[in-house]
């Protein structure tokens, strides 16, 4: 029996990538997110800001299907997370590009191989993906380090490598958890612009960060998370300005 609901799929086809309705989530006895309502659409960038320990990382874990909601309904790309099978969740995960706060790599593999991994997982051969991966490597600005093992990369290069990997399989939804941590303000803004660029190819982007000024980098819908409660700051996208470009 299919656990996919046609109404949910229609929602996804209309561009609603994520819809959280009254979601509670947490770890062990602690409830971190309380009654969260959230929506992310294709071609839009959402910035979730909030102080440390507000629940930003927990929200990204819910969105990347690593943390099941305790209550409420989480609809990610037309799939109800609470009712989906392991295979369906894996399928949805393949449509999500995730940039962790501390990205995990196969450390002894080259940056190129790590970036190509999502493509290898969907069965592409090196000759099919080599050009695309090289292009990505150039796009994130780590051409010189592409053939080095990831363990030899600097913190900023690792972050860029993680972004490239997240974009490799042309995901529908891109999640970035504190992607500018440890970077200079200029580098951080460049990284956010890089991520925001993906809205142009129809992807939805969700960035979690403490830095509210990142909202100036691109047309971004702002959300505010405090003590596990999420509120929407902008109800419509600001117009694109030269500054945001």
């Amino acid at each position: 029996m299919s656990r996919l609901n046609h109404t949910d799929l229609e929602l996804f086809e209309r561009g609603v990538l994520v819809r959280l309705s009254n979601v509670d989530a947490g770890y062990g006895a602690a409830t971190v997110l309380m009654g969260v309502d959230f929506e992310a659409r294709a071609g839009e960038v959402a910035l979730v800001t909030g102080p440390a320990a507000a629940g930003k990382t927990t929200l990204t874990h819910v969105l990347r299907l690593a943390l099941p909601p305790r209550s409420g309904r989480a609809l990610i790309m037309g799939v109800d997370v609470g009712r989906a099978s392991g295979r369906q969740l894996a399928e949805v995960k393949r449509k999500i590009g995730y940039v962790a706060e501390t990205p995990t790599f196969i450390e002894h593999w080259s940056a190129f191989d790590n970036i190509a991994m999502p493509l290898r997982m969907i069965g592409k051969k090196p000759r099919e993906y080599a050009d695309d991966v090289r292009e990505l490597v150039d796009f994130v600005g780590i051409s010189e380090a592409a053939d080095l093992p990831v363990e030899k990369l600097s913190g900023a290069e690792r972050r860029r490598c993680a972004i490239a990997r997240a974009l490799a399989a042309k995901p529908h939804l891109i999640l970035a958890d504190d992607p500018t941590a440890g970077m200079s303000p200029a580098d951080g803004r460049r990284v956010v612009r890089l991520l925001a660029e993906m809205r142009r190819v129809g992807a939805g982007v969700v960035i979690a960060s403490q830095d509210e000024s990142l909202a100036d980098c691109a047309p971004i819908l702002r959300w505010r998370l405090e003590r596990g409660r999420l509120t929407q700051v902008d109800t419509s996208l600001p117009a694109e300005t030269e500054a945001s470009e």
């Binding site: 393949r94 997982m121 990997r165």
Partner: peptide, 10 residues
Amino acid sequence: TVMCDLGATR
């Protein structure tokens, strides 16, 4: 872990 994050099934 990486494969899981990238959507590999068990």
